[in-house]
Design a protein around this nucleic acid. Structure first.
Lengths: 171, 171
DNA sequence: TTACGATTTTAGAATTATTCTAAAGATGTA
DNA sequence: TACATCTTTAGAATAATTCTAAAATCGTAA
């Protein structure tokens, strides 16, 4: 991950959102922009520590809080024990593999709901869980064993899969 | 919340899912069936403690783990710091008010996606965040103040609201 | 450039939800 | 009733996140 990813423009972007473009904030934002791994705060900390030996964990949390408040970064609560972060530049659903833990993006092509009359909806998250193609191939056993430990139940919204014409509406 | 909610049938339900219907498990399950508040483990613990003075937190966690593994209960990761639990008998989306913290159910009427070819999807969660009608009325100020602290960014899937004909597809 | 007030970073302690551990208790079966 | 197994319990352990107070940095005005 290169240090500079049009640092000048990023600075302006932060400033335009009312966030002072401190070095740490820029580096954290760059880190998120340069990966699709939806890292945890700890991963970001470890990743940047090599370049910034004085970095502290609190600084990473501070920087993330500032970026989240400015809506440049979005928090994923898909993981049970820790939060993950995503540069909020594209809209998408998130799939987490329960075997390897990886989080994958996917496209939500249509979405309708009912029963939130009078509510102000400010953000929407879609989290799927299951098994990714690699882990399906690499031994269903391994998958099964963790499946029991982390099963989340099924939630048959009954959308389709493997093609873009999914089902209409559940129940 | 009455102690008995056809205890006999619940016992059978647990047994049929391979879960031994211990007293604690039944009470935890009953507690979840008797509320729509999507309580945390701590809330369940406090709620049952009045009736079961010897109850320990670990027992609540153990019981929840057993019920979740049997797919009778579903875990919500909608909250940043703690998990919430939902008797998994109906399928629905979850809306959390960022002012009062309450979680509301709503109906997902249609849902389509793309880009998970080869993935095995085992569960789907939809989490919305925003402000509930009561908190909108009860002072936009109060809402605003917590809004900045817990803002999650917007995620314009661009579904509709206030009517059942929502938009088609984003971007 | 220098000085000053405000903001940010830092290290480590504090907090807190959850898990672990080992012992005691309960349950089912022979 | 006796034994093996599973469940419950209290408290310690774990780990992600937040808090705290001091040091460093930044932005601006003289």
């Amino acid at each position: 991950m290169p240090v500079a990813q049009n640092a000048r423009e990023l600075k302006e972007l932060l400033r335009s959102r009312g966030v002072r473009p401190s070095y740490i904030r820029l580096r954290v934002f760059q880190y998120l922009l340069g990966t699709d791994r939806h890292p945890s705060a700890e991963e970001i900390y470890q990743g940047l520590l090599q370049d910034i030996p004085t970095l502290s964990r609190a600084s990473v949390y501070n920087a993330l809080a500032a970026l989240v408040a400015a809506q440049l970064v979005r928090v994923l609560t898909i993981e049970k024990n820790e939060m993950r972060y995503d540069a909020a530049l594209r809209e998408h659903g998130h799939f987490q593999c329960e075997v390897c833990g990886q989080v994958f993006d996917f496209r939500v092509t249509s979405f309708q709901w009912d029963g939130l009359e009078g509510f102000l909806v400010k953000s929407k998250d879609v989290y799927f869980r299951g098994i990714c193609p690699q882990c399906r191939k690499g031994g269903e056993e391994h998958g099964k064993s963790r499946e029991n430990a982390t099963s989340w139940g099924t939630f048959p919204f009954d959308g389709g899969q493997n093609n873009s014409r999914n089902e209409e509406a559940p129940r």
